[in-house]
Write a protein that binds this DNA or RNA. Structure first.
Lengths: 139, 139, 139, 139
DNA sequence: GTGGTCTAGACCACA
DNA sequence: GTGGTCTAGACCACG
């Protein structure tokens, strides 16, 4: 797993970390139970403040994606096969989807092209076969 | 055209205004040439400061979606049929799409459901039939 | 002489009129003594308010390029062969030139390309032979 | 780096700041990675409101010339060697160049003098030798 | 009356 | 401490 950040982006670093982890889980690169690096370790690897990593992990915990323990560190709590989405999530997500797809439409991408992009993206989210373990994987 | 805002959202108000206008253009509710309310008028209607509306309109102008004239006020400049997307837009957009779709996947929506949502959303972006007038429509 | 305006431009209309006249004089399309349409005539032709044309003509008068009389209307006062630039003009103009050329440089145009563009533009400013009269030309 | 403003000019202050920065980048006085003063600092130095500086920096950011980080403040993003000009820029720029050069021609500067001025200006845009450091330079 | 600019003060998010 | 947002009031340029 490679975690690429753009320190000069307008998107906050903690948000980028959160986004990359979400994508890794969706792509099956991080399955349920997989361990993430400690905040200090990841901060050192990325050359950023560990408070920033902390904030990202805490955000992921509040979203239900991570379990944080002093002992075991950060562990993935749910993956693509875990269950149905929480109530209320769908509405908010749908609104953001609508905005994002409207942006492309307005910029001249036609409906077919937009849907093709969606299809390609979702197609890239292949859940790993059951047997493949990823625990302890480094970042 | 109804412009619904959430003043308590973490998303900046000017950004919400911008998003709603983009969606309205994508949906064909605002066609090229359609007039938007004046900054001060819209600000009064929404109960916010006119500078905030100003910022939203200015953002839309920079994105090429609005024309701002001292005479005629704010007018839609391009709609869903205007032209091809600018180079470089697709990359950034694709990255944001990937993040958003990963979010839904992680929350338990399977690929089919995600694509169905995309299809429904894009399907809602129907360009109005030629006869439908939208100019001068109030907010 | 064709006077093309963009009513939706961010550049004020009176400024566009002034710019087009300056360019026409530089290109030799309007020589010294040539008559311009009356403010009301030009305003009608362009579909704009005659106060706007008035403002443009007044600006050109203050720049020394037009003579305005109730009787003879607007007449070109000086052209490319009239004389040396007024004192103080060169400094201001040089500063604006510097800004404009810096803009192109920063956007990636190299020095040769910038100078080539300047050469092409200046090359298009051909002063008419003495004999060619343009008085009374319509717009 | 010296940033000279004319508070009584008809040109907006935020525009003047933007112009001076563009020129400094073109002249190589500000290379990629060079740090600019913080908005509040620069505002204090110039005796203006920090919102005005904010607007100038935001404009430069949208033009792709500045990176604005909450951590490191304002940093130059691209300089004269960064890349090719964006499509569509050349047209608009060429029109403005034509107007500006016509102005000088009309005021009595002949073609040779105009081109000489252009040459001198572009000649002043020399990229600094590699060794010259500009980072952290104060205003 | 419209948008644009400048000033001013307060609060928040980020690192 | 940095930039970002929102509010607020005044004045100007444009048509």
């Amino acid at each position: 797993m490679i975690l690429t950040l753009d320190l000069n982006s307008e998107i906050p670093i903690y948000q980028q970390i959160r986004d990359r982890v979400v994508e890794a889980v969706a792509a099956g690169e991080l399955a349920e139970g997989a361990a993430l690096p400690s905040t200090r370790q990841l901060a050192a690897d990325l050359g950023i403040n560990f408070h920033t990593v902390n904030k990202a992990y805490d955000l992921l915990r509040r979203e239900g994606l991570l379990l944080l323990n002093r002992k075991s560190g950060a562990v993935v709590r749910r993956d693509a096969r875990s269950g149905p989405p929480e109530p209320g999530f769908t509405d908010d997500w749908g609104a953001r989807l609508r905005t994002l797809l409207a942006e492309a439409t307005v910029q001249g991408l036609d409906g077919a092209a937009v849907l093709a992009a969606c299809g390609r993206t979702v197609g890239g989210f292949r859940v790993r076969p059951e047997g493949a373990r990823v625990e302890g994987e480094s970042v």
